[in-house]
Design a protein around this nucleic acid. Sequence first.
DNA 1: ATTAATGAACCGAACGGTCGGTACACTAAC
DNA 2: GTTAGTGTACCGACCGTTCGGTTCATTAAT
Lengths: 198, 198
Amino acid sequence: MRPAQAPSSEILDALFSVFRDHGFEGASLSDLSRATGLGRSSLYHYFPEGKEQMAKAVLERARSIIDNDVRAIATGTGTLKTRVRKIITTLDQIYASGHSGCLLGRLATSPIGAPARLDLQLAFASWIEAIETLARESGQAASDARAFAEDWVARLQGALLLQAANGDVGPYNRAMDALQDLARDVSSAGKKAPSATR
Amino acid sequence: MRPAQAPSSEILDALFSVFRDHGFEGASLSDLSRATGLGRSSLYHYFPEGKEQMAKAVLERARSIIDNDVRAIATGTGTLKTRVRKIITTLDQIYASGHSGCLLGRLATSPIGAPARLDLQLAFASWIEAIETLARESGQAASDARAFAEDWVARLQGALLLQAANGDVGPYNRAMDALQDLARDVSSAGKKAPSATR
DNA sequence: ATTAATGAACCGAACGGTCGGTACACTAAC
DNA sequence: GTTAGTGTACCGACCGTTCGGTTCATTAAT
C-alpha cells in the first residue's frame, strides 16, 4: 500500500464537508463519491486504506488550518488585539458565524482508527496552545492561561453542539466575545460592560 | 400500531447506553438487540416505528432524569450550596466523573427524526433553566443568569467532548468547580482563589 | 519519427456482508 | 381464547471494498 499520489485540494475540501456535516459513520462512500465527483474506486486510488484514511487526510487538513490560520497568527506579529480579531474572523468564516459544525467535534467520538485519532488530538493540542499563547500575553499566569485555553476550546465546541441542537448562536457569540476580551487591556479585566462591539 | 406495553426500565437503560456510546448511526439493531437481550422482533414489539422511536424513548428518559434529578433539585428546598452540591454529585454519577459521554451531545447532530429532536431540545431547555435558576439565586441579573446557564451547559458538553478526544478531565472538573462557585457567597465573587475543595 | 511500455487517473459492476425492517408461527399467561 | 411477547427466517437496500478494465500523457527504445 504505497502512498499513492496526493489528492487535490478540491477533493479534500469535499471530503471535509461531508465528514463535518454527516460524521464518520454517517458519511457513506456514496456520499463521499458524489461530493468529490469521483467514482468509488477512484477514491480508493487516492486512499487505498479506505474511509479511515480519508478521515485521517481530512483531519490532517484541519490540523494544518489550525496551525497556519490560528496558531501561527497567535504567535505572530502585531498587537494582541489585532491578532485576536484576526483569529475571530477566521473562526467566524470556518464556522459560518456559528451556524456550521466543527469537524473535530464531530469526529471526536467516532471510530476513526488510531492514526486519524492522533491527528485529531494534535489538532486540538495546537488549537489549545494557540489560545494559551493569547491568554499568556493578556497577563494570565502560566497555569491559568493553560486552563483558560482548554476551557475556551471546550466552550466553543459545546457552543457549536448546542447550536446544532436548537439553532441558538448565543453561546457561540459569547464565546467569541470572551476571546475578544483577552485583548481588552492587559492588567485589569473590565467588570461588567456587556459586549458592545462585534 | 397500538401503544403496546411500555418497555421496562432495564430495556431503556440498555438502549440508553448503546446510543450514548455509539451514537445514532453507530448503534445497529444488532447492538441494541444484544444489549437489551431482546430479539429484533421483540424490539419492534416495543418500538413499532423502529430505531428513531428507540432514540426518542431514550431521550424522553434523559429529559425526565434532567427534570427530576437536576431541575427539581435546583428549584427545590435547601440552601443554594446544598442543592448545587447535590446536582454536581448527580452529574458526576451520570458522567462517571467526566469519563463517560453525554447522550444529548452525542445525538445532537444525528438524523434522529423530528419527534426525537423535540425531546432533545426540551431536555437541553430544562437543563439550562435549572442552571439559570441557580445563577439567579446566586445574585446574577436575569439576562446574565440565562447567558451563564447556556454557556455553562455548552462548556460541559465541550468538556465531555474534549475528554472523549484526548482523555483529559481537566475541563470537566473545572466546569464543575465553576458551578460550585455559584454558591460561594451571594454578593461578591472571589477574585482568584483556585478551587481547593472538590 | 514511430512505436512500445509504463503508470497515474478514473470508472462501472459486482463482491460478501450487514443494515433496518418485516412476516409469521409459536408460547405462555390471563 | 385473546393477547403480550418471542424466535426464526427472511426481505431488499445499502454498506465498505475490490475487481477488471479503459483512457491518456509521459517515457524509452527503435
